[in-house]
Amino acid sequence: MAEIPDISDTERWILETTLKERYDRDLELQLADAEIRLHPSDRELTSCPVVFWHDSQGCNFVVFKTGDRNYRCQFFYRGYQQYGTGVNEYDDLSECVVSLLQAQADHAAEEHGDIESKRS
C-alpha cells in the first residue's frame, strides 16, 4: 500500500478556518502520526497523519487522514469516553470536521439535558 500523504497546507487551512468559525478564535492544532487498522480485517497497522485539538470544555478531537482525500474522526473526553459521527470515513475534510463538531455539540447538549437523547 502506498504511503498516506501528510496533512497539506490546504487541509490545514480548511481545519483552521472551520474551527475559527465554530469557536470564534484560533485553536492550536497538533500534528502527529497514529498507527491504526485501515480495515477491521487488517492484521498490520498503518501509520496515518493525525490532527488533534481540544476545546475549553475538556473535549479532545482527532481527525485521521487515512488516504488521499479520506478521513476518519472522533472526539473524546477520557480514553474510555470515545465518540464518533456514525460515518466510518469521509472523502471531504470539511464535511468530516463539521460533522464531528456537530456530533460533539449534540452529545454535550444531551449530557446537559438540553435535547432528548437519541439512545432513548
Score class of each variant (00 low, 15 high):
H39D: 13
A32K: 10
E28F: 10
D24I: 10
S41K: 12
L15D: 01
F61K: 07
D24G: 05
D55Y: 03
D55R: 02
S41L: 14
K20M: 08
H54T: 06
P49R: 04
K20Q: 11
L45I: 02
D42A: 03
G58S: 00
W53A: 03
W53C: 03
D55E: 07
L27W: 05
G58P: 02
P40Y: 09
G58R: 07
V51W: 01
T18V: 11
A34N: 09
L45M: 10
S47K: 14
Y23T: 00
R37Y: 10
R22Y: 11
A32S: 15
E44N: 10
E44A: 14
A32N: 12
D42C: 05
D42N: 05
D26Q: 14
D33M: 11
D24R: 13
G58M: 03
Q30R: 15
F61R: 04
C48F: 04
C59N: 14
D42G: 03
N60I: 02
L29Q: 00
F52K: 12
L29W: 01
E28T: 13
R43L: 15
D42T: 01
L38N: 10
A34D: 12
C48Y: 05
T46S: 11
D26M: 11
P49Q: 05
L31E: 11
I36W: 05
F61W: 07
V51Q: 01
I36M: 01
T18F: 06
E28D: 11
S47R: 15
T46C: 05
W53T: 07
A34P: 00
H54E: 14
L38E: 08
L45A: 06
S56D: 15
L31I: 12
E16S: 09
D42I: 03
C59K: 10
S56V: 12
E21V: 14
Q57S: 11
T18Y: 07
L31C: 04
P40H: 07
W53M: 05
R22D: 05
P40F: 09
S41H: 15
R37V: 01
T46M: 08
D42E: 09
Q30F: 15
L45Y: 07
E28I: 09
E21K: 14
T17N: 11
E44H: 13
L45S: 03
T17A: 14
V50L: 15
P40N: 08
E21H: 14
L45W: 04
I36R: 06
L31G: 07
W53P: 03
L29K: 01
W53R: 08
D33I: 13
I36G: 09
L38F: 10
L19Y: 04
I36D: 06
C48V: 15
